[in-house]
Design a protein around this nucleic acid. Structure first.
Lengths: 213, 213
DNA sequence: TAAGATAGTAACAGGTTACTTACTTATCGC
DNA sequence: GCGATAAGTAAGTAACCTGTTACTATCTTA
């Protein structure tokens, strides 16, 4: 806004001073991003600092320790995944339509953020007790519950047979997305998750509906 | 065999001298085992050595470096997973019966070795190029091919509709197992993967068969 | 414009990790 | 039984990782 800033060269290196709030957001983004390349356990504070264009020490001005960074990442995950579900549900339609929209929204989200399933899966597998593991369970478990509710509603309006087991159906729903993630890594690059999702959802649905024999 | 050994206290710690061959096998088992508790990247050579009851340095008498240990682990994985598939296929029956037996055999295997899906999934997600990533792709890709062949045969004998896309069906097959793995971590302990697999396989099959509407 | 608060830096400290080395001890063929 | 070979140990080393500290630069505001 002032004259001086206009006269100055535009800084080739955008290593500007940023607010703590901004740096915290950048940090979370950097971790999600790095998780698509490294294992969560392999993400170092140095790598995070470098990615956001700051020295190592500066990171600890915004977070007391590394655990706090991970806590922020999981908060972000919970909020964003919840938002994806909310948006799909808010658009309305029959329970089955909502379920389908949720499926594709979820696929699009993990397609855009490949680090997300990795972080969650990784943390889930911890034996017990760590606070992050609890968070991961809450996030995935909450997701599962939402799917179960939608399936229940679909049964209520006659879109799905009442004999369908909701737990089993939820496993299949989440597993199908996991399967797409696995395939996308098998054919890195040459695999369009969204397109494969379009083909696979009808199979999932037929599994839900059952065979009329 | 000699008198002295009889007179001596039976060594409470069985920290005996073992052949290099034995130690190499123990090492692979230890890694698979440790992978159910820690992330693959978090498994240290010290932890492996401690688990097989040997000092850290002794490990490097049997393996030139850590990478060689991981190579051995992936060899083991490839052989064992191949054996699971071979055994299921060898028992004979219709293609669909074989597919079902393979499914349950696979579930039993990862249920006995929770570290296995973890190691494979973890390594698959690496961006590119690492030799281990290539091995992981070969293993999972080979598995996928076998499933596709079985599905193809099932179509040939009229057990599945010819309209079924084999790639999509394979994704669903692998994804379903992944889904079971996720659930087992969600309800650690109080979740019987094998039993859930019995409930979920019919849904998978109905998805394959499609709805006769 | 001066003062206080805040973001950033560079260097370091302590711990851990992968791997080495000099030495010791068990095992096996002769 | 004896000597060579192979398995094991204990103590190191260099690199790396997390977190700290003393200092500097920038922004805000009274």
């Amino acid at each position: 806004m002032n004259d001086i800033s206009v006269l100055q060269d535009p800084p080739a290196e955008p290593r500007q001073r940023q607010s703590a709030e901004t740096r915290r957001e950048e940090t979370v983004e950097a971790v999600i991003d790095l998780a698509s390349e490294h294992s969560p356990e392999g993400i170092t504070t140095q790598a995070i600092a470098t990615r956001i264009g700051v020295t190592h020490g500066a990171l600890f001005r915004h977070f007391p320790d590394k655990a706090a960074i991970w806590r922020s990442v999981f908060d972000w995950l919970g909020i964003r995944l919840g938002r994806v579900a909310d948006a799909a549900i808010a658009t309305g339609g029959t329970p089955l339509q909502v379920l389908e929209r949720l499926f594709h929204a979820q696929v699009a989200f993990v397609s855009d953020h490949p680090g997300v399933p990795r972080i969650l899966f990784h943390e889930l597998q911890r034996p017990a007790g760590s606070p992050l593991q609890g968070l991961a369970r809450t996030i995935v478990g909450g997701y599962r519950e939402r799917i179960k509710i939608l399936i229940h509603r679909a049964k209520d309006v006659g879109e799905l047979p009442t004999s369908l087991d909701e737990d089993t159906a939820a496993i299949l729903f989440i597993g199908t997305i996991q399967g797409l993630v696995v395939q996308s890594t098998l054919f890195a690059g040459a695999f369009d998750m969204r397109e494969a999702a379009q083909r696979i959802f009808p199979l999932l649905l037929d599994g839900y509906r059952g065979v009329k024999s």
